[in-house]
Write a protein that binds this DNA or RNA. Structure first.
Length: 1050
RNA sequence: GGGCGAGUAGCUCAGUUGGCUAGAGCGUUCGCCUUACACGCGAAAUGUCGUGGGUUCGAGUCCCUCCUCGCCUACCA
């Protein structure tokens, strides 16, 4: 074996071996027949937008650790791999790449499409190419990391099987009235020109201003005619402060806004009914300057009173507002609500690119309105122009002051697209919604939570629909978060849930399976849609809607949704004048179906036929619900919730909700750089997993990531630029690399020992016949195995890694291997223990460090193992490879407290001697003599030759040393070491003992203080007090022995 | 504004229900190529456990106050 471990020499070969062995392939029949318990993980499908980063490496390492451990424990494991089409992200990315390459972008293809050419199709071809490329890259990365997914079953969220699930889900929800179309304000991304869901909007702080705009007050004499209202009139009506203005001039009110450019869409000004000015002005109207539109003044409780009139001091709105609120229903969600309450017609003043437009709802010319100078301007330019215009004009000719009363700097947070980063425009449009607020979706997502993780309020609002039937019931109350605190995030999200906008104005994604046709009259629509159902579509399950709010507002329209529309149905619809909705579904709609679609739902036979995977029909029954979902916390709302709602909804039967899609959800930390910043491309602080694999090896990376995975929400990884390669790396990975190297060498050394003196097959060995050190080592393995099992059960990955490290490095290398050096050659039982313990260590390490352990396992394959009674391994399908071999399952009786205690004394004695050697500067190779008599001499005789080997002791003498010697205390008695040097430095020896004495005295002081406190002796548990007394007694003995040694020197 | 998390050695982090003199890795110092491993071995130094209070015989751990940082969420009058 080479001097050090070189990962690249082995990883590829080992990977190929695993793939050839079929070790990762899940067999549902073993689950259904009861041969094995299922253990399932669904990969959070990575976006095909980019290569995997370190966060993915962490996420997938964790999943692989869990999967490999359970495989070895005898579970039938399925790790379902796949990728996500990531609609908006991918489409944007491809567009960007095309433009960078100087090729036509999506705008050009859209133009072609409008001209009747094949724009959409052609563009999608390019996206598919991009997707194929990245999917391959991602798959390759996962394989390099060692991910033991069932690669034969890999899915993509837009493949045939997943697409069928999407169509069926949409159909069912549509049929059940849980999908509807609505005309309302959505989060509009003007750059990508699509609607976004609430959680795709990121809030960012923006420095802006409050603009105070004056709107002149008018009487409307008759529609289209109005006269100015004077301040004198307001004075008469008791408007506070009106008397401060010239009485014959036109009066105005002032509105405060951060978005003056939307004033063209104002349809009212609102005032609180509690405002003392309300009565005085509500009979009047306002005239929008420049445009000339006359709008009413309405009273609405939503409006906050300014501080002056009784508003809460400290409330930003009360502090900054004037009490008059401009109402722009088409461009502000709150104004939309006010508009609904007061039946105001919204006026949309923007084009989809957020430029000011009079072609999208603002009938400027028809209504003879001004403001043409704003048309065509971007939001930003329009704002500047509005401000300039207001500044340049006065309320009426000759009046004082401009229409722009003042500007006040104001910083607030504004929604931005998580993709284009453009400011979100609340925009009025027709969109499809999923009624997730329905109890059958939201309610059952809440009920899925384990009751101990739910809040009282939530249990009150959404009581369980039925009690748990059996212990492992996977419906209500079956889903737990780890760490538990994340259950709260999940619950709160549902508490505030609004209906989910599922349509996206994109090309890349699942096309909405709805066809539309317009009719001249309601009767025509009715009769034809009846005819359709009975006629040319009679072979299909269809739902037709001709009377929802949008359909009616558009005239007479009919929407048809067909269950699993095939090409024939599609062409029939086209023949009859129906066109398919051009929009696609939100990516998360298909992601939400991941636990179902990957298992072949709704039609496993079709899935079998199209994929050629014979056992597809058994998958759902065998592997849903999955065991655990491993993901990052940002996904709780986007994904976990939706998967839960859909799984329960679609697997429900007889009005009863179905099972939750997973039993446990593990939320892992996010990796940040050394300064606590997110790793990102733009900051250049990202670390590429493949770079680490090539510099340190996959196992080193995995161990380090595992070791970093604590229960906190963030972990930091200092990033450094490797000058040699020009790539980012982190010194943290050295930990893993060093461990691998140590393992390699320990294996080399063990093998050397076992080859020199081969193990011979024999009868099972009784652990009681083993030497102290062997019983100790076995006991340590038992202890570590228990700790690791607990750590795995609770997703405490750092505990797992630390336990491995301590067991292997500290116990096995530092003490066991060093201890057996003198005896292994002559003790066949010891060789059996070495072989077995090393095997157990390899298996315990394998889930974290699969490549090196498999490699070493190959090397050890020919070295026989003797059975040690009670040291068992789990039953698995085969032991052909280490990754399929059984997990250590030693019986508890191998935990040997006596051996642990005895060896602890050896270690303590050895450490004491080593300390003296170091302090007295004994030459490292020099052998010394230990003088000990009495019971310690007997013990050492039994422990022999451990102390000699470990402490560099040549012999143990029961005589007192005749010449120079160093004294030390051990367990309260005085002993000597001699032959430390050719001549002992008495001064140094005295100094050492004096220092030692001071340390002991200090400890005694502390302990005496505690014992002299009556509160302690009276109230603390008796065993603790006794322990303290024993400790004091021990220390006093040590003190006396040290003193006597010191006296002898003097 | 609401919620969550973090603040422990120079750095990255552990520290279960309060209970031996607060730990690990890296880094640092000293000595070593001691029958695998210098990616190593042996030894050592380094802490007012963010602040201030409280409960207790006893607090890194429980309660309250405040400070700093991060994340989520709400808010464009």
């Amino acid at each position: 074996m080479s001097k050090s471990y070189s990962p690249s020499d082995h990883e590829t070969r080992i990977w190929d071996k695993w793939m050839a062995s079929g070790a990762f392939h899940a067999d549902p029949s073993r689950v259904l027949s009861g041969e094995a318990q299922p253990y399932t993980i669904l990969i959070p499908p990575p976006n095909v937008t980019a290569a995997l980063h370190l966060g993915h490496a962490l996420n997938n390492s964790i999943q692989d650790i869990l999967i490999r451990a359970h495989r070895m424990k005898g579970f039938e494991t399925l790790w379902m791999p796949g990728t996500d089409h990531a609609g908006i992200a991918t489409q944007t990315m491809v567009d960007k790449k095309l433009k960078e390459a100087g090729k036509p972008g999506i705008a050009d293809y859209k133009k072609t499409e409008l001209e009747g050419g094949p724009g959409r199709e052609e563009f999608l071809k390019l996206v598919h190419e991009f997707k194929d490329q990245y999917e391959e890259r991602i798959t390759h990365q996962l394989m390099k990391m060692g991910c033991s997914c069932d690669w034969d079953r890999q899915r993509f969220t837009m493949d045939d099987i997943c697409a069928r699930a999407v169509r069926e889900a949409f159909f069912q929800l549509f049929k059940d009235g849980l999908i509807y179309r609505g005309k309302r304000l959505v989060n509009w991304d003007p750059v990508t020109q699509t609607a976004l869901a609430d959680d795709e909007v990121e809030m960012e702080d923006v420095d802006g201003h409050f603009y105070y705009l004056r709107y002149p007050l008018v009487h409307e004499t008759e529609p289209g005619n109005h006269d100015p209202v004077t301040w004198a009139e307001l004075v008469r009506r008791g408007y506070p402060g009106a008397e401060d203005h010239p009485e014959d001039e036109q009066a105005w009110i002032t509105v405060a806004t951060t978005r003056p450019e939307t004033y063209m869409g104002d349809t009212a000004v609102a005032i609180s009914p509690k405002d003392p000015r309300a009565k005085a002005v509500s009979a009047f109207k306002c005239e929008l300057p420049i445009i000339g539109r006359v709008i009413p003044i309405i009273e609405d409780d939503y409006v906050v009173l300014p501080v002056k009139y009784g508003g809460e001091p400290g409330d930003v709105k009360a502090e900054m507002s004037t009490g008059f609120l401009k109402v722009t229903p088409a461009h502000d969600p709150n104004d939309w609500m006010i508009g609904q309450r007061h039946s105001l017609e919204p006026i949309n003043i923007m084009a989809p690119d957020a430029s000011i437009s009079d072609q999208h709802g603002w009938e400027r010319e028809a209504n003879n309105e001004g403001g043409h100078i704003f048309v065509g301007k971007s939001r930003e330019d329009a704002r500047k122009l509005v401000i300039a215009e207001f500044k340049a004009h006065t309320v009426a000719e000759g009046s004082e002051g401009s229409l722009l009363e003042k500007m006040v700097p104001y910083s607030h947070s504004v929604g931005h697209s998580y993709r284009s980063h453009a400011a979100i425009e609340p925009y009025l449009s027709d969109q499809w919604y999923c009624k997730v607020s329905d109890d059958k979706l939201r309610g059952n997502a809440q009920r899925a939570l384990e009751p101990n993780q739910r809040t009282e309020n939530s249990i009150k609002d959404w009581p369980e629909s039925r009690p748990k039937m059996v212990a492992d019931d996977t419906t209500d109350g079956s889903m737990s978060f780890f760490p538990a605190r994340y259950a709260k995030t999940y619950e709160t999200w549902h508490d505030n849930l609004r209906d989910w906008c599922i349509s996206r104005q994109l090309w890349w994604g699942h096309r909405i399976p709805v066809w539309y046709k317009e009719y001249d009259s309601f009767e025509a629509m009715e009769s034809e849609s009846d005819a359709i159902v009975l006629g040319w579509l009679k072979d299909y399950q269809i739902v037709s809607i001709g009377s929802d709010e949008v359909a009616q507002s558009d005239g007479y329209g009919d929407y048809i949704c067909i269950a699993d529309a095939d090409e024939k149905a599609t062409s029939l619809l086209q023949e009859h004048g129906y066109t398919q909705d051009p929009d696609v579904l939100d990516t998360w709609f298909s992601s939400a179906l991941w636990p179902l679609s990957t298992m072949g739902w709704p039609d496993a036979t079709a899935a079998k036929d199209s994929s050629g995977i014979e056992d597809f029909e058994s998958m759902l029954a065998a592997f849903n619900p999955s065991s655990v979902l491993t993901t990052a916390r940002e996904i709780i709302t986007l994904w976990v919730s939706r998967m839960t709602m859909f799984n329960r909804y679609f697997l429900g039967e007889n009005e009863q909700p179905g099972k939750a899609p997973f039993k446990e959800i593990f939320i892992h930390a996010m990796i940040q750089d050394g300064d606590g910043r997110k790793m990102s491309k733009s900051l250049g602080n990202g670390v590429d997993p493949l770079d680490i694999i090539s510099s340190h090896g996959a196992d080193a990376m995995r161990f380090t990531l595992c070791q970093m995975t604590t229960q906190t929400q963030d972990v930091r990884m200092p990033v450094e630029l490797d000058e040699a390669t020009g790539k980012n790396t982190s010194p943290k990975f050295d930990l893993g690399r060093n461990l691998c190297n140590k393992l390699w060498n320990a294996a080399k050394f063990s093998m050397m020992m076992l080859e020199k003196n081969p193990i011979e097959p024999g009868m099972p060995i009784d652990p009681q016949e083993l030497t102290l050190i062997d019983r100790w080592m076995l006991s340590r393995v038992v202890d570590a195995t228990n700790k690791i099992n607990t750590a795995q059960r609770n997703y405490m990955f750092k505990d797992y890694a630390d336990t491995l490290y301590d067991l292997f490095w500290r116990d096995f290398c530092d003490w066991y291997l060093e201890s057996i050096k003198p005896t292994i050659a002559d003790n066949p039982n010891q060789r059996a223990v070495l072989r077995l313990v090393f095997e157990a260590i390899l298996r315990l390490m394998h889930p974290v460090m699969p490549f090196i352990t498999e490699t070493l396992s190959e090397r050890f394959a020919d070295i026989p193992m003797n059975e040690i009674t009670g040291f068992n391994f789990a039953q698995t399908r085969t032991n052909e490879t280490l990754c399929q071999s059984g997990w250590p399952e030693p019986i508890d009786e191998l935990r040997d407290e006596v051996a642990e205690e005895a060896y602890e004394r050896v270690r303590s004695l050895v450490s004491t001697i080593r300390e003296i050697r170091a302090q007295s500067q004994v030459a490292p190779k020099r052998k010394i003599v230990l003088h000990a008599s009495g019971s310690l001499a007997d013990d050492i005789a039994r422990w022999s030759p451990l102390v000699e080997t470990l402490a560099g002791v040549e012999s143990i003498s029961s005589d007192t040393p005749d010449g120079q010697a160093a004294s030390f205390t051990f367990e309260g008695a005085e002993y000597q070491l001699s032959n430390l040097a050719d001549a002992l430095d008495e001064g140094a020896e005295k100094e050492r003992l004096t220092k030692e004495l001071a340390t002991i005295e200090k400890s005694i002081g502390g302990i005496k203080g505690r014992l002299s406190n009556p509160g302690y002796t009276d109230k603390a548990p008796a065993h603790l007090v006794q322990q303290t007394r024993d400790q004091l007694a021990g220390l006093e003995k040590d003190r006396d022995a040290t003193k006597s040694a010191l006296d002898k020197l003097a």
